[in-house]
Design a binder for these strands. Structure first.
Length: 277
DNA sequence: ATGGGTACCTGTCTGC
DNA sequence: TGCAGACAGGTACCCA
């Protein structure tokens, strides 16, 4: 699922309601991608002081009774995960694999495929969290993400620019939907080797990545199947996609049939007429 | 350092 | 109706 817009929509729909809540209990369902890394009883009594995002990860900052730093939970939604917040607790379903009972309500991770994870870490900058966050690229809305930086980062890459965008070590948060969408808007053939993308085209790509993510954010993300925000609402950006999942349909710009190819075992959608190497 | 492939797991859809 | 196969928003890890 969830690329940056979906994760950020989750954070925004959650943070105001859960900030300050005290944890009164926790429940684990089936195993997720990694073990929690602490006894669930250790979480009880801690307070959620903040929810932040890095790439596609969410970080729930925890405080102890004396307001001292008390670690946190790093959450990833994987391919099919979503977080839901409900004031009234309910019985877990077969896909509900992590519950955090709080004084404000129930925070629940639903994840049919279980590629998601909830990992405890003593801090965001050390231990398990730091290890997972290490090597992530720059945030797409960080001013450091600019044409010169992208051009420099792509200079040594022979892989296709689509795969370089997806890798997450140059810029974070651009997943399979938004990589195709951004490349279409920038007019760049997704098969172009990274090192062949000119500085001028890097500038267009930076803008396109930001535009697409911003539009998706405003639409509440994309819901292909599983994604819901913390209030259970679908995203709507999938209806605004210009190329993703539109194989054979006419390009909105030139009318040519859109194509689907496979790059690194992932589908890529593009217009072979509008997007050039 | 880069890049290719595999693995994790479950649900849904398509075609025979 | 049944069943096999393809495919789905991600990413760590292993081996060239």
């Amino acid at each position: 699922m969830p690329e940056l817009p979906e994760v950020e929509v989750t954070r925004l729909s959650l943070s105001g309601r859960i900030q300050g809540a005290r944890i009164t209990g926790a429940r684990l369902g089936k195993p997720l991608r990694w073990p929690l890394g602490c006894d669930t009883r250790n979480l009880v009594g801690r307070r959620i002081s903040d929810v932040s995002r890095r790439g596609k990860y969410l970080w729930f900052e925890l405080r102890g009774p004396d307001d001292a730093e008390a670690g946190g939970l790093l959450v990833h939604l994987g391919m099919s995960g979503s977080l839901n917040f409900a004031e009234q607790p309910s019985q877990p379903g077969p896909w509900d694999h992590f519950d955090l009972l709080t004084t404000r309500g129930l925070l629940r991770l639903t994840d049919p495929r279980r590629f998601g994870a909830v990992v405890w870490s003593a801090s965001r900058d050390e231990g398990a969290a730091a290890k997972l966050l290490a090597g992530l690229g720059v945030e797409p809305f960080d001013p450091a993400f600019d044409a010169r930086m992208l051009h420099e980062a792509l200079r040594m890459r022979r892989v296709a620019v689509k795969q370089a965008l997806l890798a997450g070590d140059i810029v974070v948060g651009v997943g399979n939907i938004y990589a195709s969408e951004a490349l279409f808007r920038a007019g760049i053939d997704p098969r172009t080797p990274g090192k062949r993308v000119s500085l001028a085209r890097c500038a267009r790509l930076v803008d396109a990545v930001r535009d697409v993510l911003q539009l998706a954010l405003a639409a509440g993300g994309s819901t292909l199947r599983d994604f819901r925000n913390a209030h259970g609402m679908n995203g709507a950006f999938q209806h605004q996609a210009l190329v993703y999942d539109r194989e054979g349909l006419p390009c909105t710009r030139c009318g040519a049939a859109l194509r689907r190819i496979v790059q690194g075992q992932r589908s890529t959608y593009f217009c072979a007429h509008c997007q050039r190497r």
